[in-house]
């Protein structure tokens, strides 16, 4: 039985290490996973400068391609932020979908992002079901 001790100690130490890293490393500086456009706008410095995540809905009609970059507007109820990203959008990316972008707000007011993630909402619909985009917009507005 006790020849299992060394692996157990190694596992134990790794667990303590990773939990410590979680407690003081990745979580410590970033308790909020993403900011909404309103929150970013309301930040003391106008949100400019620091690396943050911005989350919201892709505004209908706002998506366009500029060279190798994709430009679109992320909005919530009260505010919107223009985003320019070099990331290749995931396949689910579309107008009206929830996204989380990582980057920072530039001096020109455009959020420059290297990373673009899309959210799936809590709706699961078969392809023949009715109007999807409205449902999705409604359910994502709560975020």
């Amino acid at each position: 039985m006790k020849n299992a001790k060394l692996p157990a100690i190694l596992v134990g130490l790794s667990v303590v290490g990773v939990l410590g890293f979680l407690a003081f490393g990745s979580m410590g500086d970033n308790l909020v996973y993403y900011w909404s456009p309103s929150e970013l706008r309301a930040a003391a410095d106008g949100g400019a400068g620091g690396m943050v995540r911005l989350g919201g809905l892709v505004k209908a009609g706002s998506v366009r391609v500029e060279g190798t970059k994709t430009v679109f507007t992320v909005e919530d109820h009260g505010a919107s932020v223009e985003v320019r990203t070099a990331a290749i959008p995931p396949q689910m990316f579309r107008e009206g979908i929830g996204v989380v972008v990582e980057g920072s707000l530039g001096p020109d007011g455009v959020f420059e992002s290297k990373r673009l993630l899309v959210k799936h909402d809590e709706n699961y619909k078969a392809p023949t079901d009715g109007n999807l985009s409205q449902d999705q917009t409604r359910s994502l507005e709560g975020d």
């Binding site: 001790k5 100690i9 689910m92 993630l117 899309v118």
Partner: peptide, 30 residues
């Protein structure tokens, strides 16, 4: 779906903490 294998969002972080905590207790028992 999202475009990433892993990100430190609250749910993923919390699951990691949950599983690692109980894994640590399993190691403690050994």
């Amino acid at each position: 779906t999202w475009g990433t294998w892993w990100t430190w969002d609250p749910r993923l972080t919390s699951v990691a903490v949950m599983v690692l905590s109980f894994l640590g207790i399993l190691a403690l028992r050994a």
